[in-house]
Structures are given as structure tokens and as C-alpha cells.
Simulated assay, not measured.
Amino acid sequence: MTIGGNDERNLTGCFAGLRVLDFSTTIAGPHCARMLADMGAEVIKIESDEGETMRTRPPVRGGCSTAFGQLNVGKKSVVLDLKSPDGLEAVRRLVATADVLVENFRPGVMQRLKMDYPALAEVNPRLIYCSISGYGQTGPSAELPAYAPVIHAASGYDMAHLAYQPGRSRPDYCGIYHADVVAGTYAFGAIASALYHRERTGRGQHIDCSMLEAMLSLTLNEIQWSQFPVQLPARPTFGPVESSDGYVMIAIASEKTFQNLMKVIGRPEWVADARFAKYSDRRANWGALMDGVEAWSRRLTNAECLAALNAAGVPSSAYRTVAEALNDPQLLHRGALADVEDDGGTFKVVNLPFRMSDAKVAAGHRAASLGEHTAAALKELGLAPMAAVEPLE
């Protein structure tokens, strides 16, 4: 049984038939639960009477945030007062019917609400309970407040990125929240693994996902360089190459790529040049090599550079805005964008970046209005309508 009916587009999803309770806010947890919804699960988002904080984030049209919609499309919205006895009873009854719970409050919040894993596992031993937090559920930093930009700094990511910006000493401003997306994606994978484990054991379990550790996993080379220092080239390996009207990215990551690029720029003799022939020598003389590449690229437009590079099989791209990327015919071919709606109208969201030959992977068609499914949920649970809801602190 599902609250408010099934989304027909998700009936063949891998997780069809699973019920997920989404207590999370902002980005990391909602992103994880959105992935579960796209895979066919019934995701019930639990909100306060004021609504989740992202409901007010721009762009807002007709009182509806597309930023919220992107993270919560395909979910149902149920408003409960988690601080009241009636709200707690509703949660316990929902938990008894659920397979997965996702939360990303600061450690200790769910315990104070009597909704931590030990308490709810008594209600449903098969429950898979996923907690996403800045630093993990235990340890000296566990209860520190954390958002993605803080985790970027704490993980070393920002300073690692700065090391690739010659002549600069001030870290970049943060506008893209990698830590949220990465942690939410790791949590999704952990939940899928726990579901498989439950098939074999019959037991649920608690998942403790750390944003700090998730972010650290992005710095693969730097983790090793921190233990065993290496000499980096004066000019970073990957970066913008100037053309007559902009910049292109050229990725020289194999011997074949290097050899093909030398032909494209009219320097085939450099393949045997002592400065560049071996990978180790090439790294030591990377600045001279790329100066030669730019002597070629500066005479051409972006389009001319890319035409020559693509013809030779050299990985390359122009630097594009997100708006330009969204118009890429490749994304249209893949069906990478979905048209969804909320009470403010229609907008586009990105589908999950994979396709499956025998299962549906797609965003739901609607982002629910606040409390849209509360009445149906309470009716299913055999409970009366509730009074106004207090927001969580």
C-alpha cells in the first residue's frame, strides 16, 4: 500500500515496493532520497508546518522553489510535529511499514526525539536507518555543526584545489556543494548494499555516513602525495589552453594521446625529444610542452581547435557554462533532463546519470506541495488529523 497512489513512471524501478522515510533537510539527505525515489521507491518526506528550509531557496515562482523541487521531486510530503506525542506515534506507525529511513540532523537530535536507530529498530528490526552527518556519529568532532563549505575546508579539498592555481594563496569561494552530493551518493550506495544484506540476513542496520570522509575520497592523488611527497610540474597537468577566442581543456593522459597531440600541433618530432619522450621527463618539462601547444592553439578559434583535436582522438572540450551544457545534443539523446512540475509550474531536473536495460530510472513527475499527503498518511495509519506543527531546531 502506498500513500496517495503509485507514480506510474516508477512501477518498474528496482526499488518499487520499498517505502522510504525522508527526515532530511537541505541537500545531502534529500539528494540521497531523491535517488531512491528515481529508482522506484515510495519516498515520504517528513516536514514541519513551516516546511523544509529549501522550500524558500531561489529560484522561487508562485511560492515554489525549483531548487527544492530538484532535490525532492517524486516524493510525498507529510507534515508531522515530531516534538508531540501524536507526531511520535505517527512516526512509529510509519516506521513499522518502512524499509529505509534517511536523516541528516546533527548527531544527538534524533535520539532526543526518541527516533534514533535503537528506538526505531525495536519497532521494525528490518529497518535500514541511514544517518548522514558532517563528521560521523561518534568522535571528538561528531557534534560540531557542519555544512558542505565547512567540510570542503576541513577535508583539505579547498587547499588541494588551490595548489593547482599558480600564483594564488587565497582559497576559492564555495558555490558548488560537492560534499553534499558526494555524501548523498555514498549514502545511496550504502543503503542499496544494506538492502542486499537484509535479503540474506533478514535484519536491518544503521548506516553512519560522514561528509568529511566522503569529501576526502575525492582527493585520491593528494592522499598519497601527503604520505609520499612528489615533485609536481610548475604548470598543472590539466588546465585551460588559450585559443584566439577563449579556452579549451586538453587532457593528455596516455602515450597515444600525447603522440596524437604532437601531430595535431605540427610537432611530431617532439615525440622523440629528450624533454618529452618519457613520462617522467615530460612532467618535468610540462611548462615547455604546453607553451608549444598554446603557440598552436592561439592561432585558432575554440571551434577550430576542437575540430582538429577531436579528429585526432585527443580528449578535449571548450569551457562551457551550465546553461550551454544543458543544450548539448548528447544530453538530449540520453534523455538526461526530465520535465517536472510543482504548484508554480514546470521546470527541468537532471535524471540519474545511468541507464539500466531492464529497469526504469527516471525522476518522478511532480514535487509535492507542503503537507500534500498528510491526510492520506494519517488515514492509512488510523490516526486523526493533527494540530499545527512546530519546526525542528
Score class of each variant (00 low, 15 high):
residue 270 W to Q: 10
residue 270 W to K: 10
residue 270 W to F: 08
residue 270 W to Y: 10
residue 271 V to G: 09
residue 272 A to H: 07
residue 272 A to W: 01
residue 273 D to H: 13
residue 273 D to Q: 04
residue 273 D to S: 06
residue 273 D to E: 04
residue 274 A to V: 13
residue 274 A to T: 14
residue 276 F to K: 08
residue 277 A to F: 06
residue 277 A to D: 12
residue 277 A to R: 05
residue 277 A to K: 07
residue 277 A to P: 13
residue 277 A to M: 10
residue 278 K to F: 01
residue 278 K to Y: 02
residue 278 K to A: 15
residue 278 K to L: 09
residue 279 Y to D: 02
residue 280 S to K: 13
residue 280 S to Q: 14
residue 280 S to F: 00
residue 281 D to W: 00
residue 281 D to F: 02
residue 282 R to L: 06
residue 283 R to Y: 06
residue 283 R to I: 03
residue 284 A to C: 09
residue 284 A to L: 09
residue 284 A to Y: 09
residue 284 A to D: 12
residue 284 A to W: 05
residue 285 N to P: 13
residue 285 N to D: 06
residue 286 W to Y: 09
residue 286 W to S: 01
residue 286 W to D: 02
residue 287 G to T: 13
residue 288 A to T: 11
residue 288 A to H: 07
residue 290 M to C: 07
residue 290 M to Y: 15
residue 290 M to T: 12
residue 290 M to I: 15
residue 291 D to R: 12
residue 291 D to C: 03
residue 292 G to I: 06
residue 292 G to T: 08
residue 292 G to R: 00
residue 293 V to R: 02
residue 293 V to G: 08
residue 293 V to Y: 11
residue 294 E to Y: 00
residue 295 A to G: 14
residue 295 A to S: 15
residue 296 W to K: 14
residue 296 W to N: 11
residue 296 W to Q: 09
residue 297 S to I: 02
residue 297 S to V: 02
residue 297 S to T: 15
residue 298 R to V: 15
residue 298 R to T: 08
residue 298 R to S: 07
residue 298 R to G: 10
residue 299 R to W: 01
residue 299 R to H: 13
residue 299 R to Y: 01
residue 300 L to T: 07
residue 300 L to N: 15
residue 300 L to A: 13
residue 301 T to I: 11
residue 302 N to C: 14
residue 302 N to G: 05
residue 303 A to G: 04
residue 303 A to P: 06
residue 303 A to C: 03
residue 303 A to I: 04
residue 303 A to H: 04
residue 304 E to K: 01
residue 304 E to D: 14
residue 305 C to W: 03
residue 305 C to A: 04
residue 305 C to E: 04
residue 305 C to K: 03
residue 306 L to S: 14
residue 307 A to P: 13
residue 307 A to T: 13
residue 307 A to N: 11
